[in-house]
Write a protein that binds this DNA or RNA. Structure first.
Ligand SMILES: [Mn+2]
Ligand SMILES: [Mn+2]
Ligand SMILES: [Mn+2]
Ligand SMILES: [Mn+2]
Lengths: 222, 222
DNA sequence: ATAATTTTTTAGACTTGTCTAAAAATAGTT
DNA sequence: AACTATTTTTAGACAAGTCTAAAAAATTAT
């Protein structure tokens, strides 16, 4: 029962998985097309193929969701993606905004020994450079209690633990503003006019727009 | 002038390169087909495509050779292949007979930063686990003066530096017989009947068949 | 030199993944 | 309920890479 999927098929499973996670309901053809920068008609074709292989549940016009097997594969690809990202940053001198593109390629390399060997070499990291949890070899991963920074109220204190947007542009902005994962922050003021925030980060007062605060994850305080 | 080749195209270039190296003349369609476990007709099709891209010199019915650009790409893929093999053995606990299959996948990952970062991480290794030289980032590599062990005469002393056959079966045989790269050997006796050899390896007397001795490379003594 | 054999190329077909254009189904609006 | 707009699916085509079967060229043998 060893099915060998193409990179394309794996990418579809990953896309469906991540879209399902945010909405928690059947994923639409158009959403998948947008995510994979392809056309809706191509998506329909591929969905049929994946349904044939029992990797997705598909009812015409009703959207698609992953089966157990499909979810397992999607998570395994995500595991590889994130492990490689850790490797690139820790050992090859990549910046956190440079790793994604390469990890998109490395995630499709098929070798259980490679994946688990890499995991061990990295000492079983639990988060990738963007703060996303890394599934273990059985597909289990930490479900963190997080919110976006923009949801905090004046006076709240928390810790920055991840990014929602991991585009190179956003990550470079954060580098520039010296906002790193793991730092403690305090919300000094919320401007009701434009919803910008004044933060205290490591003794520094920094003002950030809502665009920024809504793309930063902080630890949920409770 | 950035051409983006498919994995298949890269594999053809690599095959043509390695076949050319042994014969030093235009490579035949059938040889390529055999090497890549495909059909001659498929090879002809692909050769035309590569000729179109100026990666090979092709004259109908006369075989094929690499252009400068084609050779450059082939060597670059080989560089990646061998660097990954070193990584897998040194850092992920792979045996030397397990690395090839995975390296066949990793060699197609495209990122200059990745390749050069890996090279630096490994401290610029000059040989892969099978004793094959690793091209540097400019495509230059050591041309060693080597012969097959079977060519040595009685009384000759040398050092084992590589394997000609790198099949898992052969490599496992070597592991079992405790024949490793880098060890000094002395030819005690050559049996004229079956061309087997009696060797002295690290104080041990070992007899090997011609099948074995003709697949081991030793340093040329002069 | 001619015939037989082998190698290489061509012709036509198939699969995967994609596309555009058009049809069908669904959702939203009056 | 009927019309409109949007979403999704189908139909047909294309490029990449492969295959089988047959034709053409090159090589080897007689
Ligand atoms: Mn990523
Ligand atoms: Mn990531
Ligand atoms: Mn190899
Ligand atoms: Mn090797």
């Amino acid at each position: 029962m060893e099915l060998d999927l193409s990179q394309t098929e794996e990418n579809y499973l990953k896309a469906i998985y991540s879209l399902f996670v945010v909405s928690n309901k059947a994923v639409s053809t158009n959403k998948i097309a947008e995510k994979l920068a392809t056309k809706a008609s191509s998506v329909t074709d591929m969905i049929k193929k994946l349904a044939e292989k029992d990797l997705v549940n598909y009812v015409k016009y009703q959207g698609v969701s992953l089966t157990g097997k499909g979810k397992e594969i999607a998570i395994h690809v995500i595991r590889k993606h994130r492990l490689w990202e850790v490797f690139l940053v820790r050992h090859l001198g990549f910046q956190w905004d440079e790793v994604h593109e390469v990890a998109e390629q490395l995630e499709h390399v098929k070798s259980v020994k490679l994946t688990n060997g890499l995991d061990a070499f990295l000492d079983f990291p639990r988060y990738d450079p963007h703060g996303d949890p890394i599934p273990d070899k059985d597909g289990n991963f930490i479900k963190r209690n997080i919110t976006v920074l923009s949801a905090l109220k004046e006076g709240d204190e928390s810790k920055i633990v991840g990014v929602k947007d991991s585009s190179s542009a956003f990550l470079k902005y954060l580098d520039n503003a010296e906002i790193k994962l793991g730092v403690e922050i305090k919300v000094l003021h919320k401007e009701s006019f434009d919803h910008s925030m004044m933060l205290l980060i490591e003794g520094q007062k920094i003002s950030i727009s809502q665009q920024i605060s809504s793309n930063l994850y902080v630890k949920q305080n409770d």
